[in-house]
């Protein structure tokens, strides 16, 4: 047995092999492979429709893959669910009624072999402030906190969160991630999906970039940021030779539209310093972050995108 198979069969990690799923004519997931160690936090980062949710649904056994397999600490997703090894917060879903928040979380706690104390889960998620309110009378953000509490109370080895902060405001988002960090610090394994680079960068040990159902990059947040965290500098600079702009520090590509030039930069600070020095007549300078969508387009533009 070589070293690779030893890892693949290990009970101490998560192995996702060649996951594939097609819905009708849409090839949602087209061969996702990764391994992750117990106790780490991995972000699945990608634009909407990239296949993150489908990947997650296959990891937790909600969707059956057409092809490929998932091993969670040596178990199939169905067995891992049955053993209470997974606590999950799916992207959609609301709460059942006729129960208070505390009752609902207690009901969920009863389903797991060794749940967290209910009050503890309510406190970590921030749902303790409205624990005695009926589930029907909650706002969107409050509902999201309760759903987080339900995932936490399992006290499972693996916590899976699919775009958990979508319904939250800025403050709610920050509180959420602080809570997630506190939970992960107990040695838990966390997988979360997001389309915010900042979230993935700040809260994950590793980022897996997904676009068009494939992994397009996989690495530490700093590496991924270098790949997709580029900036776009726009400026008015009439009659300049584009070939002279290309060699500027930090520039990856240039375009012109009328008097305006657009510089795609990996290091916009360096580019700007040179730009101002070499072209004192430059004006209307704008710097903005290149969106993930743009970064993904660039990463995947030569990708075959044919239907099945």
């Amino acid at each position: 047995m070589n070293e690779h198979t030893a890892v693949a069969n290990g009970t101490n990690n998560i192995v996702v092999s060649n996951l594939t799923k097609t819905f009708g004519k849409v090839r949602a997931v087209r061969g996702i492979n990764f391994e992750m160690d117990r106790g780490t936090t991995v972000a699945l980062l990608g634009p909407n429709g990239a296949g993150k949710s489908t990947t997650i649904d296959m990891m937790i056994g909600l969707t059956t893959p057409d092809f490929g397999s998932v091993s969670l600490f040596g178990h199939s997703p169905a067995n891992a669910v049955h053993m209470g090894l997974i606590g999950a917060m799916t992207q959609t879903g609301s709460l059942i009624d006729y129960l208070s928040v505390r009752e609902l979380v207690s009901m969920m706690a009863a389903l797991y072999p060794s749940p967290l104390d209910v009050d503890e889960a309510l406190r970590i998620s921030g749902a303790d402030a409205f624990a005695d309110r009926m589930t029907r009378k909650l706002s969107g953000g409050e509902t999201q906190r309760v759903r987080f509490a339900m995932a936490l109370v399992a006290d499972a080895e693996l916590l899976v969160l699919d775009e958990p902060t979508v319904a939250l405001d800025v403050e709610g988002r920050r509180d959420f991630w602080i809570a997630m960090r506190a939970f992960a610090a107990r040695g838990k394994t966390v997988v979360f999906a997001t389309h915010y680079l900042e979230e993935a960068d700040a809260y994950a040990d590793r980022i897996i970039l997904i676009a068009h159902g494939r992994i397009v990059a996989d690495g530490a947040p700093t590496e991924i940021k270098a790949t997709v965290g580029g900036r776009i500098v726009r400026a008015t600079l009439p009659n300049v030779d584009l070939d002279k702009l290309r060699p500027l520090s930090g520039v990856t590509s240039v375009e012109r539209r009328g008097d305006a030039v657009t510089l795609n930069c990996a290091d916009s600070d360096a580019t700007l310093r040179e730009l101002f020095t070499l072209y004192p007549n430059v004006r209307d300078v704008e710097v903005r972050g290149a969106g993930l969508e743009e970064a993904f387009l660039e990463l995947t533009e030569d990708d075959d995108d044919e239907a099945v």
Binding site: G61, L62, V81, H82, G84, T90, G93, S94, I96, L111
Partner: peptide, 17 residues
């Protein structure tokens, strides 16, 4: 009603048979 709000999906990722 529980299906409609996604509750049965939620239960499918718990150990409850």
């Amino acid at each position: 009603a529980e299906r409609q709000v996604g509750w049965t999906r939620q239960l499918r990722i718990t150990p409850l048979p």
